[in-house]
């Protein structure tokens, strides 16, 4: 089993953070993990994306041109990565920041108004957790409660953020439960 995931959005959306949350959790399950940011000037204020690989075997290429899954947090990221997803791949889309339809017809995508949901929970910045929650609900590459525990470690200094982010994770998972989501 190997899962390749690209998470993309703009700087400040917590793109790198949810990627790291995944690999730290997967490491707890003794899986092989790899996290790689896109680096350089483009990460400052503009694009931010990272690659996450979780595998039971030795991980080969750190470069994943055509991942199995994507979490897309804004429109430019959708424009850039939509064509790269493998056929039948999974795409979680932050519908709040995307004002166009998904062009691909051969993929499984879920439109989640993550920013709105997070805003209703008290902080729009938790949209990343909403999308991560949705992703975990579908893919289950790492245990959901284990991810919550990792999250607690990440925000050990700020208990209010722990509560907010946990709620956001759960709300994301609940969204998936709504059958109506899929177009």
């Amino acid at each position: 089993m190997q899962e390749d995931l690209i998470i993309a959005g703009f700087g400040g959306q917590g793109i790198m953070l949810i990627g790291q949350l995944l690999v730290y959790s997967a490491l707890e399950e003794n899986k092989n993990v790899l996290w790689m940011p896109s680096y350089g000037p483009e990460t400052r204020g503009g694009f931010a994306n990272c690659t996450v690989i979780i595998s039971n075997e030795e991980i080969g290429s750190p470069i994943v041109a055509h991942p199995q899954s994507m979490i897309i947090m804004n429109l430019p990221s959708l424009d850039r990565f939509e064509d790269e997803l493998i056929p039948q791949g999974l795409m979680i889309v932050n519908d709040s920041l995307i004002n166009r339809k998904i062009k691909r017809e051969d993929i499984n995508f879920y439109l989640i108004p993550a920013t709105e949901i997070a805003d209703n929970l008290g902080n729009a910045k938790a949209a990343n957790m909403v999308d991560l929650g949705a992703y975990l609900k579908i893919k289950n590459v790492v245990d959901f409660t284990l991810t919550e525990k990792t999250l607690e470690k990440f925000f050990a200094n700020n208990s209010s953020l722990i509560e907010l982010n946990k709620k956001a994770l759960e709300r994301g998972a609940q969204e998936i439960a709504k059958e109506t989501l899929k177009p």
Binding site: Q20, V23, L27, N32, V33, L34, W35, M36, P37, Y39, I59, P62, I63
Partner: peptide
Amino acid sequence: DGILGQMMEA
């Protein structure tokens, strides 16, 4: 190279 420098592994 930059990939090895930037990527995170166990």
